[in-house]
Nucleic acid binder design. Structure first.
Lengths: 214, 214
DNA sequence: ACCTGAACACCGTTCAAGT
DNA sequence: ACCTGAACACCGTTCAAGT
């Protein structure tokens, strides 16, 4: 048993049963050890969760500096969102704040480098980094908070909610639900690329505009 | 004592001492009542937090249908971000999922209506709604997770982090920190409007483009 | 160096009992 | 109708004791 195995097991537990199922006692069971032994490998639960967040950051496909910035950032953004969907608990965790791990640092360095080599000034790189990552995080959070995943579930859930909704009070919400969400083939996940491409196109314009955003 | 007072007191407690300080026993103290009495007014802690989330949604400035969509959405987006900054715990909560309260429904209806009256098709309204709100949520989350708030704190913190950073391993991150974050006048909060306006301009283009995003 | 039993100070929540 | 004491089954974490 080592730190790595503790973290990997904790990630698997949070993935399959949610962050609230991740208790030291339960994690101990999964590791065939008593809860107190875990403290030989992590300082405390905060340290553990921080390490988990850093571990999944390493799963994100790194953009290549040699690629064009736009397809490179697009690819890694899609990968980022996939990772956050796979580890839903991570959308509400955010390590990085106080002491980011090596996976997080490496990822950020590469993203910043991709913008810089793509012709973005330092200021514009900061804008781009903030804008894209905010969008990705926010989208992953919204997606996570939806009470359904499959299309059948969505349709069933939306139908129930629409039936309960005082439609005269919320006419626009009712219209959107009836004429869009309930339409066959609707999937909230499809919205991701729309917003992402909007943002990337905006960044391209910004990059090529003098001063405007500095 | 009534439900409203319970919720308002809980919001105040979470605002000032964080969500982890919000326990039923502690909330009881603030209400001058024993913890168990609270259950006369809320079903359980989940119900309480859901109600709290709905309560702060009502604080967001509603866009007016009669205004131009762009300034109207811009104004309410700034207000939304202010509310999330004021109630940092709310960025990780998200009720709406299963059973949104009246404050949430009313807000969503107005936003949707503003896009519809601004000439957005139903599909494009769905795109716009998702894109803007994802950005706002994500930005608020990033802002919350920063370990500093004032400019002095930022500078001090960034200096420490930069000193610890293996700069040869993360050259781009080091450059951004040294030449941007550490510059006088830097404030991460300023990034909000940059990304927001990028998104709003993108939405305007999308609105006026045939089919493209439908 | 790693594991463990017992213990401490907490949680959310139930329930029977009070007014 | 609202409040409460006692209790239950949990938490994270410490510490002395074991190998």
């Amino acid at each position: 048993m080592n730190r790595e195995r503790v973290i990997a097991t904790a990630v698997r537990l949070a993935d399959t049963e949610g962050l609230e199922a991740l208790t030291m006692r339960r994690l101990g069971e999964d590791l065939n050890v008593k809860a107190m032994s875990i403290y030989n490998h992590v300082a405390n639960k905060d340290d553990l969760i921080n390490a988990m967040a850093d571990a999944i950051f390493s799963e994100i496909e790194l953009p290549s500096h040699s690629d064009e910035w736009k397809p490179a950032i697009r690819k890694r953004s899609i990968s980022f969102r996939d990772v956050l969907a796979r580890h839903a608990w991570a959308t509400t965790v955010r390590d990085s704040g106080t002491n980011p791990g090596p996976g997080t640092l490496r990822h950020h360095d590469r993203v910043i480098g991709t913008f810089r080599n793509g012709g973005f000034s330092i200021e514009k790189t900061a804008h781009a980094f903030s804008a894209v990552d905010s969008y990705i995080y926010g989208f992953a959070m919204q997606e996570k908070s939806l009470p359904f995943t499959t299309q059948e579930e969505t349709a069933a859930m939306a139908a129930v909610m629409l039936a309960q909704l005082p439609t005269s009070e919320y006419p626009y919400l009712a219209e959107l639900t009836a004429d869009h969400v309930l339409k066959p083939g609707y999937s909230y996940g499809d919205e991701f690329l729309v917003g992402l491409d909007l943002m990337l196109d905006g960044l391209e314009t910004m990059r090529d505009t003098d001063q405007a955003f500095e």
